[in-house]
Amino acid sequence: MIIGTLGIFLLFACSKSENVTPYQTAPKAETRAKGEAAALAVPVGTVVYTSNGYKLTLTNNDPNFNETVRQKIVDIFFGKYPQLLTRFNPGVTKSITYVIDPNYSGVAYTSGTTVTYSAAWFQSNPQDVDVATHEIMHIIQAYTGGTPGWLTEGIADLVRYRYGVNNAAAGWTLPAYSSSQSYTNAYRVTARFLAWLENHVSSTIVTNLNTALRNHTYTANTWVTLTGKTVDQLWADYGANPAL
């Protein structure tokens, strides 16, 4: 829940602005007349949300974008982004953009301060709103140049695991350990390794790895500096007793 005043400005094709209840888009009269199902579609256009110094610009290009999904991913920004900023990167921007793209065939991607989501993915997977938790972490990370992709994605999925709001309903879990895995597999495999490290080795290791990555001081020796062991030694320890 967001405490404080939430300013909303609607910038639809008609260029009409109106005040609506926070986190809800008011359906037009003709839409309401078509029944509840139609009213659940978010109008095409751009909505700007502000609260406590944070700003989210949401551009929806999908006439079938679900209102419940919109509500949840907006809530994730205002509920989780400040927490991630405080923990991982206090100097990062407080203004980001969501784009709902009906022509994008992937799931989601982040470029700079803009997260683009696949409209088709949300239509088929309306519970998978914590893709937003993963993607806003990429904005928080703000890594530039030379960062291992497996670690970048592993940290983002670790954040989804720790901060996600709907993972269980979406059927999203961390995979069980397998000897065929590697810490460089990225995403959920790496995330589970990082969760194990937080639980059994150092509660601050992910925070510290993130700092090293942002400051361009990360090397293979960073693991030794933080834990006294190489990443390969840590992975071997994990494989010997992988219970979280």
Rank of each mutant, 00 (worst) to 15 (best):
T227P: 08
S179C: 06
I2W: 02
T114M: 08
K55C: 08
A169R: 09
Y177W: 11
T147F: 03
S179Q: 11
G45S: 10
R70S: 04
T217R: 05
Q127L: 12
Q233W: 07
S179Y: 11
S17H: 14
T190D: 01
T5Q: 11
A169W: 04
N19L: 15
W172C: 00
A26N: 08
N61M: 14
E153A: 03
Y109M: 07
V48A: 09
K94I: 00
D232C: 05
N199H: 09
L244M: 13
F77H: 02
S203D: 15
V189L: 06
G146R: 09
G91Y: 06
N19V: 14
A243N: 15
T31E: 10
A39E: 10
G112M: 10
T86N: 11
R87P: 02
Q233A: 12
V107R: 03
G154S: 10
A195P: 01
T207P: 01
R87H: 01
P175Q: 13
D128P: 03
V92I: 11
I155W: 03
L85K: 14
V44N: 06
G53D: 10
S118Q: 05
Y81H: 04
V224Q: 10
L213E: 02
G171Y: 09
G149K: 12
A240C: 05
V129D: 03
G35V: 09
N221Y: 12
I139H: 00
D75Y: 08
T225E: 10
T173I: 06
D75G: 08
N61Y: 11
A195L: 14
R192D: 00
Y54P: 05
F193S: 00
F12K: 10
Y49P: 00
V201F: 06
A170G: 07
H216G: 09
Y143V: 05
T57Q: 10
S51L: 08
G7E: 13
K16T: 11
Y23S: 12
V20M: 09
W235F: 14
G35L: 11
A29V: 13
F122R: 01
L213A: 02
Q127I: 02
N199S: 13
Y177K: 04
Y98S: 02
T46L: 07
H200N: 13
V48E: 05
V74R: 01
A220H: 11
I76Q: 03
A142I: 05
